[in-house]
Amino acid sequence: MITAGIDLGSTYVKGVVLVDGAVKGWGVQPTGPDHDETARAVLGSALQMAGLRLEELGYIVSTGYGRRVTSLAKETISEISANAEGTRFVARALGVRTILDIGGQDTKAIALDERLNIDNFAMNDKCAAGTGRFIEALAGVLGVGIDDMGPLSLKSQSPLRITSTCTVFARSEVVTLIAEGKPKEDIIAGIHEALAKRLATMARKVGVRREVFFDGGPARNIGMRAALEKELGVTLVVPERPQIVTATGAAVLAAARLAKAGGQ
């Protein structure tokens, strides 16, 4: 059975090809002005990696902010459900009860029950405060590549306090700190802490139970992980490819639909 999941996020589009219960290909691209076009390109590279053609896909499910704008998918599902589905798939045996996900414009905390069904969820309610955009925008101000943020922040001895989670205000705080000649690593560590605090508050809203799973692009950031672990006092479960968990969930769901319909 061959299916695909596409996660059309606000900053990245992710795609996963699933063959008989195993991820065989994936792709990630920055979201272009044309969502549908980006989705096709991403799916194309995931298929190429799997050595398959588009016609061989039995069912496609889309998710994420732009899930309704692609003509590729037969069905859509919210990113909350897709993320939970993906987590069950990649970490079934690990006893995950809480999922934390930092996305481009939405940050989410999901609580799972004993059977790993969604019990409750919370999402940030406003703007880009406390989302992946927040880190990206501030990395830009610092002139640091997004992938260097994590390693750099680990060098920090005394993280600085960033008091605002509003991207615009935090940006001017950072500008001031740079002007004051504060070390970059301390500023970056402060940025991670600010975001971790915000995410932890959201997590506590739904209840933090172990194990705590952390996914979404920023979960690759080792400094972000460390800050969140410190804030929550737990060791996080981070999947090998945190960015594609939600897309994987959509592909798994597509497989379930296909199986139900009796397809191969």
């Binding site: 599902i77 919210s78 990113e79 909350i80 459900s81 939405d106 059977r115 069904n117 969604i118 999402m123």
Partner: peptide, 21 residues
Amino acid sequence: LEQVRTRIEAFIEMIRARREQ
């Protein structure tokens, strides 16, 4: 609109999953 839609869809999917269970 889309932000609210995502929350509502997720909520309804959650309820339906519960019902199936």
